[in-house]
């Protein structure tokens, strides 16, 4: 049952533990189609873990993930113990959710074009020409058409991250996850990456972005969430969030440290 204002992604009671440490503690989150959610918070607060859980790079202990109205990713065996769904299903889900990493993780042995073509070619089994066509489109979108035949080692950090975005976009994902996409970049290179993300937002891409760039959160976000110790402490539209930050001592001290 699909409705217009049904959330694209719905998280309920997500809990992820690493041994004794509870990284994410019962988080609920609904993301509507086209919405841009920005998650901020101190390091170790579970932002990245939450994002990785959405892409099944982390296996959660409790909670449900609902994508396009279907509960996905986990099944119960006959003893009632839940475990990750079959690799095929997980791969299919991941191919609909793009992810961009802090350290780019481009494939160094492939050219820029090869990196972007890899998903359509290997995962979607598209033809060489078709994959190449898609990849060139995506490279044009991130403004790196002229770099298509070089290896990633020759690119600047900002260029690498834009290629990584193109690589994720080539799969035509319905949701994009950005895990601190600018944290490994020199300050003067941050702008070009955010320009790319901004352009995506204008096209109506649904995005969850973990970042420390408050300016970007203020400008682009539909909703800003402050996360600490595995839980959402506060959330709201950027205007409300930044206007009412004084109410939360923790948010205030966090923001004063990074701004």
């Amino acid at each position: 049952m699909k409705t217009a204002n049904q959330p694209l992604l719905s998280l309920k009671g997500i809990t992820k533990r690493f041994g004794a440490l509870t990284a994410v503690n019962g988080v609920d989150l609904d993301v509507c189609p086209g919405e841009i959610v920005v998650i901020i918070g101190p390091s170790g607060s579970g932002k990245s873990t939450l994002l990785r859980s959405v892409n099944f790079l982390e296996e959660i202990e409790e909670g449900t993930i609902t994508f396009e109205g279907n509960e996905v990713g986990y099944v119960k065996n006959k003893h009632g113990r839940r475990h990750l769904d079959t690799p095929q299903k997980i791969c299919a889900l991941r191919s609909e959710i793009g992810m961009v990493f802090q350290h780019f993780n481009l494939f160094p042995h492939m050219t820029v074009l090869g990196n972007v073509m890899e998903g359509p070619l290997t995962v979607q089994r598209k033809s060489q020409e078709e994959a190449r066509h898609i990849a060139l489109d995506m490279l044009a979108k991130v403004g790196l058409s002229e770099k298509r035949d070089v290896y990633p080692a020759t690119l600047s950090g900002g260029q690498k991250q834009r290629v990584a975005i193109a690589r994720a976009l080539a799969m035509r994902p319905k949701l994009m996850l950005f895990d601190e996409p600018t944290s490994a970049l020199d300050p003067e290179l941050i702008g070009e990456v955010f320009d790319t993300i901004r352009a995506l937002g204008k096209e109506g891409m649904t995005m969850i972005i973990v970042t420390h760039q408050m300016g970007f959160a203020k400008e682009m976000a539909d909703r800003v969430i402050f996360m600490e110790a595995g839980s959402f402490v506060a959330q709201g539209t950027p205007e409300d969030f930044f206007a009412n930050q004084m109410e939360h001592d923790r948010i205030q001290s966090f923001l004063s440290r990074i701004l």
Binding site: L57, P87, C91, R94, E118, G119, Q124, A170
Partner: peptide
């Protein structure tokens, strides 16, 4: 992780 994130199998 990057390979998995674009939907590749192991």
């Amino acid at each position: 992780e990057a390979a998995k994130a674009i939907g590749m199998s192991y």
